[in-house]
């Protein structure tokens, strides 16, 4: 499955929780929002092969 973040696209293994994928990429769920196939979801969702995950940074500045 594909992961888009910080302007790059990477291929990772699916079939596991998004938080596992984030750990592998060194991305903190405190600092990124998960958008799975276009829908905002929690990091506890399970991704399937063929899914697309976009990680959107929680920008500060209120």
């Amino acid at each position: 499955m594909k992961v888009e973040f910080e302007g790059k696209v990477r291929e990772v293994r699916g079939g596991r929780k998004l938080i596992e994928i984030m750990k592998e990429l060194g991305v903190s769920p405190e600092e990124y929002i998960c958008v799975l196939n276009g829908e905002v979801v929690t990091e506890f969702e399970v991704a399937r092969e063929g899914d697309t995950l976009k990680l959107v940074r929680v920008w500060s500045g209120g």
């Binding site: 769920p29 929002i33 905002v40 959107v56 940074r57 929680v58 920008w59 500060s60 500045g61 209120g62």
Partner: peptide, 24 residues
Amino acid sequence: PEKVLAVYAALFHPDLPADECPYL
């Protein structure tokens, strides 16, 4: 929490500029 506000913004104000201050 900031994350709650960020998710709210992503869902309800998707046209909010997502730029960060260059000095931050």
